[in-house]
Design a protein around this nucleic acid. Sequence first.
DNA 1: CAAATACATCGAAATATTTAAATGTATCAA
DNA 2: TTGATACATTTAAATATTTCGATGTATTTG
Lengths: 91, 91
Amino acid sequence: MELKKVEKISKALADPNRLQILKLLHKNKSCMYCSDINDVIDLAQPSVSHHLKQLSDAELIIAEKEGREVKYVLNNKIIDQYTSFLTSLKV
Amino acid sequence: MELKKVEKISKALADPNRLQILKLLHKNKSCMYCSDINDVIDLAQPSVSHHLKQLSDAELIIAEKEGREVKYVLNNKIIDQYTSFLTSLKV
DNA sequence: CAAATACATCGAAATATTTAAATGTATCAA
DNA sequence: TTGATACATTTAAATATTTCGATGTATTTG
């Protein structure tokens, strides 16, 4: 995995609200809508939208548009790639 | 692993210079001195010192004082703990 | 088509991070 | 003990991130 990509994923993971969103997605078996996340995270809607975009840009989550809602799905694959890189750093 | 700790490690990993330092430590089998890192990283000495402190505070590296030099060692254990947390997020 | 809903984008303020020059501290060597 | 070396800390400037109100854009519903 490219260092630039590792940096981007790390940045996405470096915020308590975004970590909470990922935990929520895990708990709810990855299927959550933006409004559900808005209900739980104690931030204004544009802030949540911003965080979801960062997670999405890092490919940690995948946004699936369903009518006027957006469903968010955890991207297991990129987590594997990221952890593989980190493991490869070990001596 | 605590979310606060995950956040701190993620922050430490979210910088190109710090990632490069970790790669250097891996390449050199974890045994490097501050001055060696200064030679390779294109930053002033206080900046490198600052980055090493962040990696050290996140426990990604361990600083071992040897006389007037400091040797840096990769902390495999914390990498394992961090990747375990990330893996546990998967659905 | 008009109103409502769900989410995104813009703009701006508050806060955090990165960087380096200047300086400080500890250790070694002569 | 004096000068040099290795690294840390302080201070301050530049830059990036976080946050939210206001507003914009689709989509659905009546």
